[in-house]
Amino acid sequence: MAVKLTERAAEEVKRFRQENNFDEATSLRIGVAGGGCSGFNYTLGFDDKYDEKADSKYDCHGVEVIVDKKSALYLDGTTVDWYSSLEKQGFTFENPNAVKSCGCGSSFQA
């Protein structure tokens, strides 16, 4: 299984990439870092580097997503969506590997 972006999240990534003049070849890198109130934080960023041995690459609605293989262990099956309302907006993570999440949804425990 892989990390997936919803169509809405992919459109937001494309919009952001265009507004900030990122090259079309620049990929979205999704990962996990230690920290946060639940143990791990989700990380999102743009990257033009891909290491075939250390990374996995996925295409999600026209957005190339890179996940390092260590993070992939925690993110397998995760769906990234874009949420927008009057009080907040941002990416959300639906992670089947998380046994506990913090209230803000940006960190989890596996």
Rank of each mutant, 00 (worst) to 15 (best):
S107H: 11
Q89S: 13
F46V: 08
K4Q: 08
G31L: 00
V99R: 02
T79H: 03
A2R: 07
T6R: 06
F93H: 09
T79K: 01
H61F: 06
T6K: 01
G31Q: 02
E24K: 15
K57I: 11
S106C: 09
G36F: 02
F93P: 13
A9F: 03
E52M: 09
D51S: 09
S101R: 14
W82A: 07
K88H: 01
T79Q: 00
I66M: 01
D51G: 09
I66G: 06
V67E: 03
S71Q: 04
R17G: 11
Y74K: 05
V3M: 02
S56Y: 04
K70S: 04
L44H: 01
N21E: 05
R15W: 14
L75Q: 05
F40P: 06
T78F: 09
K69T: 05
L86I: 13
L44N: 06
Y42T: 10
Y74L: 06
S106E: 10
E11N: 14
T79Y: 00
H61V: 04
V13I: 11
K14L: 06
N41C: 11
F93D: 13
G39W: 00
A110M: 11
V67Y: 01
D68W: 13
N41H: 07
F40V: 02
S106M: 11
L44S: 03
T79L: 00
R17Y: 01
A9E: 02
E64P: 12
S106Y: 03
C104P: 08
Y83R: 14
S71H: 02
D76S: 05
S38F: 02
E11C: 06
E87T: 11
N97K: 11
C60F: 00
D59C: 06
N95C: 04
R8A: 15
K70W: 15
N41P: 09
F108W: 12
G103P: 11
A33V: 14
L44T: 05
I66L: 14
E52Y: 01
K70Y: 10
Y50L: 02
I30P: 01
K88Q: 06
K100P: 04
E19M: 06
S84Y: 05
K49L: 13
S85F: 10
S38P: 13
W82H: 10
Q18L: 13
T43A: 05
L86T: 11
F108H: 15
M1L: 15
E87H: 14
V67A: 02
S106L: 04
Y58Q: 12
E52Q: 07
G34N: 15
